[in-house]
Design a protein around this nucleic acid. Sequence first.
DNA 1: GACGTTTTAGACAATGGCGTCTAGTTTTAC
DNA 2: GTAAAACTAGACGCCATTGTCTAAAACGTC
Lengths: 234, 234
Amino acid sequence: MKDRMTAAARMTGHTQRGQCAKRMSILDAAADVFCREGFAGASIDEIAAVACVSRQTIYNHYREKETLFIAVVEDVMNRANTMLFSMLSTFPDSADNLEDELTAFVVRLNKNCICNHDGKFLRKLVQTEGERYPHLFESWRQHGPGKLTTALSALLARLAHKGALVIDDFDVAARQFVALGNADLQMTVLFGGVPTDEELERAARNAVRTFLKAYGGPGAEKTDPQLQLAAVSS
Amino acid sequence: MKDRMTAAARMTGHTQRGQCAKRMSILDAAADVFCREGFAGASIDEIAAVACVSRQTIYNHYREKETLFIAVVEDVMNRANTMLFSMLSTFPDSADNLEDELTAFVVRLNKNCICNHDGKFLRKLVQTEGERYPHLFESWRQHGPGKLTTALSALLARLAHKGALVIDDFDVAARQFVALGNADLQMTVLFGGVPTDEELERAARNAVRTFLKAYGGPGAEKTDPQLQLAAVSS
DNA sequence: GACGTTTTAGACAATGGCGTCTAGTTTTAC
DNA sequence: GTAAAACTAGACGCCATTGTCTAAAACGTC
């Protein structure tokens, strides 16, 4: 309990930017401990230890445990939001080489938004404390998955308009796209582990291939020898 | 906190089968409270109140909080396992009317294994306490999703062998099948709500339609006027 | 180098939960 | 109907945690 220290805390050995560094260190540590122990199980003393900060300093910045908790959630959400925004700006815009571009996008999405620390934290949190803090849940829903599927939906519409995809319901397709992207990672993600780059790549490729088989436009037939084989063997 | 009572507890007002009824009542109540509050947040007193049982009775049946917790998990897992087994036995075996049969299967699966109390409990649990009790997690992984995807994989292989489906990797397809089946329910499920029958039906239909578009055999072309429209409009 | 602010370490009361114990009641079994 | 077993209600000690308080130390700024 005493020997854990986040990266931010480690950087803060001696006043890198005073008050602000402490705050960040506390938020990092709190996110870590809250994520591991849940709200009830997390103790301020442990957070203080992880943050390499005295307990009083925490109470100095945040009135009480719940205040700290809310602050942590907002912090993580903001970070995740920024990341999501930057992800959305890397949407593939051209339709040539669609498969590779979509695959790369799924890899980035999973790596930076789903499988990283913040994604894990938020998912866990929403499941455990979502009922206790409904407005928090609502906020996550709108700013996280909501924004993602909306944006994805728009992208798919664009691609369909170009003729690269054939889609009847863009919202459904967007949700399915995300679901397929996670299909192979569910276990790893639930376990809390971080998938390797190779796993990410493979998962994304599987997802996109299936997605394109279902929604690919007339030009996306890339006949796969395996498939023909399977078809023949029946 | 005092006015909550599970169905089992309510039935137990006066000794329906003595010791056994109490046990069930305790397990039900504990599952409820553990699910709501997490391990650390759940108090024995509250569980006792929900179960309409004195605290001593709980300690009489289970040595300590953790013993009770483990017992609850095993109980829920057993129930879920039985349910899953009964689900697997209703696998569609014929390949005619495949779409409707698969849809009905997805509806049943989601309703009875994913969206019900036990499914919610186990998912929450694995996320929050999975790291604290790794063997528990492993057990869930093997008996729950593991068994499901294995069985699904076998089913898909059977259908592919008949020529109803064209699949290159059965395991991947099985995971994708499950993922697609949940795609439209993620939010409802995370929120803890129970989707309506209509939602279930719609979600399953979307999932199966996409799955068949990707993996449907040569005979599954059911040309959709919407699609043609979208394809033309490009 | 001095002053004001921030941080620290630790003591402190208050709270609440866990697990034990006891004495009295109800239920079950014979 | 009686004896054994199970259950109840409540008191109890113990411990961890929260949040406050204080005196000393470290820090930043001028």
